[in-house]
Every structure is written in C-alpha cells, then in structure tokens.
Computed example of a mutant assay.
Amino acid sequence: MAQVVTGVVVLDCSEPEKLAAFYKEFLDAQDVDASVNLVEIRGADGMRIAFRRDANATPPSWPRPENSLQVHLEFIVEDMDEAERRVIGLGGRPLETRETTAPFEERGYADPSGHSFTLRHHHATAPKLG
C-alpha cells in the first residue's frame, strides 16, 4: 500500500515559466523542479505548486459561468493592502474586492494566466467580556 507523502497543486497554462515566476516572487518561493513542460516551486511553509504547459489552456472566466472556476487558490496574508499591491505589481489583476467588518476579509484576483485566487486576512477578535 502506497503512502502519500505530499500533494502538489498543478495549474495548466500556456507559459509555465512565466506563471511560475509570478508565484515564485509572490510567495517568496524556491524552484523545486523544472522540465520542458512543468515547473514546480515550494513556498517557505512547504506549500508546493506546479505549472504544466498546455498549449490549449483556456483561463477560467470566473465569475462568468461559461468557463467557470476550474481551481481556486487561497492565500492567508498579514497585510491585505500590501499583498494586493504586490499581486498587481507582479501582473495580477483584481477580480472582486470587498470590504467587510466580518472576521474574514477576502479579495479575489487573477494571476497573469487568468487563474483565480483569493487573498484572505483573519482579523483578531476582541476577547469575550463577562
């Protein structure tokens, strides 16, 4: 019986080198492996993500339904505004930005190949009184 050691999220895209560079910079990641059709990186916390060449890849159209959400990544960040500036500076684009007073603040983005992801910040809650 095989034992699973780890999992890797793989995003299909037409230019894996370029998409890997976006996430490598955003996540302060290191290269793990690269071949002609696949580039894999690993973030500081051990998160692994790979990018596979697919000449026919079509970006998701979320939130439009015709080619909807194919995969969704979520990144927990300490400073939402700083993370947003970094994403946009690296070539990402906002999909949905909403301010909320709820415990979770989330903002949606697309990477340079069109894959959607969310930045999420968890606000500390005040201690319960009484």
Rank of each mutant, 00 (worst) to 15 (best):
G43F: 04
Q70M: 09
L129F: 14
D33E: 14
E40C: 03
V77G: 02
V87N: 03
E40W: 06
V71E: 12
P127T: 07
T58Y: 10
H123W: 11
E82H: 08
F26Y: 07
G130R: 05
V39N: 01
E17I: 06
P127S: 08
G108H: 04
A57P: 08
T101K: 14
T118I: 07
T125S: 15
E78S: 14
L119N: 02
E96V: 13
P94M: 08
R120M: 11
H115Y: 04
A2I: 11
E106D: 14
L27N: 01
F22E: 04
L90G: 05
K128Q: 13
A83E: 07
T118N: 14
H122D: 13
D33Q: 13
R52S: 10
R98I: 12
M80Q: 06
V77A: 04
V10E: 03
R86Q: 11
F51Y: 03
D111Y: 00
G130N: 06
A44C: 08
A126Q: 13
D54V: 05
A50M: 01
E66I: 04
L129M: 13
I41F: 00
R64V: 10
G92M: 01
E99W: 15
V8N: 01
E66F: 01
G91T: 00
F104V: 15
L69I: 09
I88F: 07
V4T: 06
R93W: 08
A110V: 11
K24V: 05
A83F: 01
L90T: 03
R42Q: 13
H123G: 04
P127K: 08
L38A: 07
D31F: 06
D12G: 10
D111H: 01
I49R: 02
V9W: 07
N37F: 11
A102K: 12
A102Y: 10
S35C: 04
R64I: 08
H121F: 15
P127W: 01
R107D: 00
L69N: 09
D28A: 09
H115C: 01
P103K: 09
L73F: 02
I41E: 00
R85K: 12
S61P: 02
T125E: 14
F104M: 15
G114N: 00
G43L: 06
D54A: 06
H121R: 15
L11Y: 02
A55I: 09
S61K: 05
A34P: 03
Y23M: 01
A34I: 09
D81P: 12
P60D: 12
V39Q: 02
E99V: 15
L69Y: 08
E105N: 12
F75A: 02
M80N: 03
E78R: 13
T100W: 10
G43Q: 04
T101F: 06
N56F: 12
D33R: 08
D54F: 05
P63W: 05
S68M: 11
E78F: 10
I41R: 00
R93A: 10
A102Q: 10
P112V: 07
T125P: 06
M47R: 12
C13M: 03
F22S: 01
F26I: 04
E96M: 13
H72Y: 13
R52D: 10
G114I: 00
H122E: 15
P65Y: 04
F26H: 05
L129G: 12
D33M: 14
L73P: 00
L69R: 07
P103I: 06
G43T: 04
F22K: 02
R120W: 09
Y23I: 05
P94Y: 05
N67W: 09
E84V: 09
R85G: 11
R107N: 09
D79S: 06
L19Q: 01
A21T: 05
P65K: 10
